[in-house]
């Protein structure tokens, strides 16, 4: 297994009532903060882009989170520019370390930013953001859009098309943090431990019952071993002789 990740670590700064300190979050080491635990769940990249219209006015600027697709963080995403006239959408993929294959197109061969590249097709028309129907931030429905062009940029590069231009300023990483407060957790653990203790005593304990009946003819003794534990005969004999001894 080559180029597999060995470790994920997030270095975070915590501010608590004006007190600031630094902590690490790893996959198997969540950050505990009061009753809350913070888990490092996923990571990926956000290309920081600037999109300009044909007059050179900035229509969109900022990081766009992309969704990783494989271990080398080939990611897909969409850059939606509703403030351009007409509206522009980029159906994009991002590779942190670019390589080309004949059958799959652009692939990433390493998860770090060694040779990052943003690839996209450019679409214009109504993005459908005002339709009231929720849509994925990672995808664009291109059925009502018109394709304008196809391009790719590396950090610092600008790609120009008739309706404007797109610049890849830089690429920043993102992490997915999960905040969990699970008050029932300790009860579940106590229950589980009790369950094991109960199992041990019921499976390994020698459960047996002994009945003693006083009849007119004398005393009758009977026994039953629950999980067929051996040695019941001996015990009953001992019991009987003990009764005899008392008499």
């Amino acid at each position: 297994m080559t180029s597999a990740p060995k470790d994920y670590t997030a270095w975070v700064t915590i501010t608590d009532n004006g007190r600031t300190y630094k902590k690490e979050i790893k996959v198997n080491k969540p950050l505990t903060f009061g009753n809350t635990r913070v888990y490092l769940q996923a990571n990926g990249y956000s290309p920081v882009v600037t999109v300009r219209d044909s007059q050179g006015n900035v229509a969109l600027q900022g990081p766009i989170p992309f969704l990783p697709q494989d271990g080398n963080l080939r990611s897909i995403g969409s850059i939606k520019v509703p403030d351009a006239e007409p509206q522009i959408g980029f159906v994009s993929s991002f590779v942190p370390t670019n390589a080309r294959t004949t059958d799959q197109g652009a692939v990433s061969i390493f998860p770090e930013l060694l040779d990052p590249k943003l690839l996209f097709s450019i679409w214009k028309g109504d993005l459908g953001l005002d339709s009231g129907i929720p849509q994925s931030v990672y995808r664009i429905d291109t059925s009502k859009l018109e394709k304008v062009g196809l391009g790719s940029v590396k950090p610092g590069e600008t790609f120009t098309y008739p309706e404007g231009s797109i610049t890849l300023e830089m690429v920043i990483p993102w992490v997915n943090l999960q905040f969990v407060d699970d008050p029932g957790k300790s009860y579940a653990l106590i229950g589980a431990i009790l369950a094991i203790l109960g199992l041990l005593s019921s499976l390994y304990g020698r459960r047996r019952r002994i009945w003693v009946r006083i009849t007119s003819g004398g005393v009758e003794v009977a026994g039953l071993a629950k999980n067929s534990a051996p040695g019941l005969d001996v015990e009953i004999e001992k019991f009987v002789s003990a009764i005899r001894g008392e008499k």
């Binding site: 996959v27 198997n28 080491k29 969540p30 635990r37 888990y39 769940q41 999960q178 969990v180 699970d182 957790k185 579940a188 653990l189 589980a192 431990i193 369950a195 094991i196 199992l199 041990l200 499976l203 390994y204 999980n227």
Partner: peptide, 27 residues
Amino acid sequence: VAFVFPLWTFAVIAGAIWAESAWGRYW
């Protein structure tokens, strides 16, 4: 089976404890 059943129970519970620290939920 009776000998190993508590161990299996423990394996499942240990998995849950681990899942709580690795994945953010015990089940």
